[in-house]
Design a protein around this nucleic acid. Structure first.
Lengths: 225, 225
DNA sequence: TTCATAGTTCGACCTTAGCCGAAGCATTGG
DNA sequence: CCAATGCTTCGGCTAAGGTCGAACTATGAA
């Protein structure tokens, strides 16, 4: 009768409104301070402090101390993946709760998901790369083809630098709004970073939405049709 | 502050040990009764009933009522995906325990279920009829096709007599050892009765097991391959 | 030094919800 | 009809944990 993996412990950790809000806020990939997270969660700092300690205990977030600030971020990409999966379930059944405002539409079109591009644009980019044979996919596994490496370098990404990193280069991530896979992993992050450098896209200050510039929008559709 | 889907509600649903155990048990893909799930979760039936109602409310499981049993299964493949993601996070990724139905081999092969044929043979017959287009199935609904009517009459069943009865002609019944559907309803009962008349099969005196004669076994596999 | 800001810990409330006993339906079998 | 079985509902008990005020530590700035 004893369990396998202790799924309840993790789910209970996520299943508390204040903590869920914090984790959702961290999905942007940005590191946030305890005070900021307290604001996101709508609780006082003491309460937030307790929650964050628990999240850290459960290995859902990691901390970096810097001066008198503590910056919190999601511990691992797996955490982001799991949260996306949960959002998929919640979105499938609960349109009743979320009113679709203008920001919501922007979120569906393009948003940041643990520092990589998600939403319609993310799915489009992934599909384009796949169709042109620049990446390959076999079940869960995912990778760059030779042609793909050339493409990515031409795009301006330092592929050699990425290869040194410990994290997997390519990962697939299931989109909660589109219900299709998009590109995650260190390559996914690098691609988004490059697009920001090129000023194709800018981050919204208050949400995870990504706003494409008119120039960037045009260039994007030319690059990933 | 409130953006995105209500992830906390779902996660809290999963994040309760008893419910998590139930969901884990359902990961096998098989449908389980409330009593079985209560055992899996280590709680009494009353408690389990409450939990299952909540899971059903949250669209994590779907239920199928059959006689005095209620069979529960995961609602969608998405639910299983999310649970797997959570298990991945829980790191201690362990074995799923599977509790199998009846231990008696004969019972598993063929037995009586409300006067119709159940067990491996029942599932086989159902599959054969379906594949050959003799019956049709749409969700819960089930019926005989024109070709099926001919087949049944040839088999020696008085279809006209059955149609007079109040009870539905065809019903699907979820097998408690195979956990797949087989043929129930007045037709299911008539089919079994006919097989007994033909001396294909005899009832065991002390149990619900059905013993196929050697001749009957041969004829059965010829008729329902 | 003194003050201000960031975060933690403690203690005390108090709501939530998980749990079971007992009784109530519903279905099946005799 | 009655008995047995599967499940649900109700009521009360209890424990867990979320919440905040207040006091405390730590870092940085004037």
């Amino acid at each position: 009768m004893k369990e396998g993996p202790d799924i309840a412990r993790i789910a209970a950790l996520i299943g508390e409104p204040a903590r869920a809000n914090m984790l959702t806020a961290l999905m942007s990939g940005k590191a946030l301070t305890a005070t900021e997270l307290a604001g996101e969660a709508g609780v006082t700092l003491q309460t937030a402090s307790g929650h964050l300690a628990r999240l850290r205990d459960g290995d859902l977030v990691q901390v970096r101390k810097q001066g008198r600030h503590k910056y919190f971020a999601l511990a691992h990409a797996d955490v982001a993946t799991t949260l996306e999966a949960l959002m998929g379930l919640a979105a499938g059944q609960g349109a009743l709760r979320t009113r679709i405002g203008p920001k919501d539409a922007a979120m569906r079109q393009a948003r940041v998901c643990y520092n990589h591009l998600a939403g319609q644009m993310g799915v489009q980019m992934f599909g384009s790369l796949l169709q042109r044979g620049l990446i390959w996919q076999e079940g869960e596994a995912l990778g760059l083809t030779e042609a793909g490496k050339g493409f990515v370098c031409d795009f301006g990404v330092d592929l050699d630098g990425l290869s040194m990193a410990r994290a997997p280069l390519c990962r697939s991530c299931l989109d909660w709004s589109e219900r299709r896979t998009h590109l995650a992993g260190s390559l996914g992050r690098a691609m988004l970073a490059r697009m920001e450098t090129l000023d194709w896209v800018r981050r919204d200050r208050d949400s995870r939405a990504l706003l494409f510039t008119s120039r960037g929008s045009e260039a994007f559709s030319r690059a990933f049709t």
